[in-house]
């Protein structure tokens, strides 16, 4: 079976771990637990053509004094870039990380998530920002780790894209 490594990247507290927990274990917790280093989860997905064993790297959030080291990106076939739709500054953090990914690993498939779309009253991403992201990147979703909105689609999308490279 084909194995592929995916890195899930973004600022601290954007919901990376929750997205993975929703996808792999169908679980969600309201409690925020800050991730350390890297936690690796696995899930086999059945695509139309074949099965793929996804090795999902949940990498700690980028912080001002704790940057993500590029060695984590080694061997990655795809990246899921996550921003928090209620905190616009997390989008620029994700874009900075993505620049480093491109420098180190080259052009690999990416899916962009504006997460926490369930928090309607706190949502800060304007239609203009979403449009700009859609113009710049192929796959952009508004997701919710809480409700599961677009979570499965994200991982299937990246799996398909990685196979098509």
């Amino acid at each position: 079976m084909i194995q592929k490594k995916i890195c899930v990247l973004g600022a601290a507290g954007v919901g990376k771990t929750s997205l993975i927990a929703q996808f792999v274990y169908s679980k969600f917790s309201e409690k925020y637990l800050s991730s350390m280093g890297v936690k690796i989860d696995r899930k086999i997905v059945q695509l139309e053509s074949q099965q793929v064993n996804l090795m999902i790297w949940d990498i700690h959030g980028e912080e001002k004094f704790k940057k993500i080291t590029s060695s984590y990106f080694r061997g990655a076939s795809g990246v899921i870039m996550v921003a928090d739709g209620t905190r616009p500054d997390t989008l620029s953090v994700a874009q900075n990380i993505f620049q480093r990914v491109e420098q180190d690993v080259g052009n690999i498939p990416s899916v962009w998530l504006l997460n926490k779309v369930d928090l309607e009253d706190q949502w800060c991403m304007s239609e203009g920002v979403v449009k700009q992201l859609n113009e710049k990147y192929v796959s952009v979703y508004q997701s919710s780790a809480k409700t599961g909105e677009n979570v499965e689609q994200t991982f299937f999308n990246i799996a398909e894209n990685m196979l098509n490279v």
Binding site: G37, V38, K39, I40, S71, G75, S77
Partner: peptide, 26 residues
């Protein structure tokens, strides 16, 4: 050691910090 997927053979030195093992240790 699945953590090395895609990283072998080694071409240069590197360090992966704080990799969580199955038992929760790092």
């Amino acid at each position: 050691c699945e953590v090395l997927l895609g990283m072998l053979p080694l071409v240069d030195d590197f360090e992966l910090s704080q990799i969580q093992l199955v038992d929760g240790q790092y």
